[in-house]
């Protein structure tokens, strides 16, 4: 009996049929895109605020301030950056580094 050899191309073709049967077209790509990009925008803002706070108050203070405020306001940073959290950060920056820095943080978070 001749033994059958199995080639990558055959396995790929079989895998493709398997995928076609599962009908895996991501539904609502545009809404997923909008959701992910909104989260990315929020994370981007947080990272800019953190960088600015770190510049004036130090890396640890910046991280602790953001994490504590997020916990206090029960906020997930990739979902939202609400006004009370921003106010907190702005107040911390004002206390530590003066009013202009606090104002800057507030403006950046908007």
């Amino acid at each position: 009996m001749n033994n059958i050899g199995l080639h990558d191309s055959e396995l790929r073709a079989a895998a493709l049929c398997y995928l076609e049967q599962l009908d895996l077209h991501p539904q609502d790509l545009s809404s997923a895109r909008a959701r992910v990009l909104k989260a990315v925008r929020s994370l981007d803002r947080v990272s800019r605020i953190r960088a600015l706070l770190a510049l004036f108050c130090g890396e640890n203070t910046a991280r602790t301030a953001i994490e504590t405020s997020a916990r206090r306001h029960k906020v997930q940073l990739h979902q939202d950056l609400p006004a009370p959290l921003l106010k907190d950060l702005s107040r911390i920056a004002t206390e530590l580094c003066g009013r202009p820095v606090g104002q800057l943080i507030w403006e950046m978070g908007q």
Binding site: H25, P26, L29, R33, L37, V40, R41
Partner: peptide
Amino acid sequence: PGESSFGDLFDHLYP
């Protein structure tokens, strides 16, 4: 890494 470059990458990675 930024919103715009990640947006371009999204269509490629998400599916």
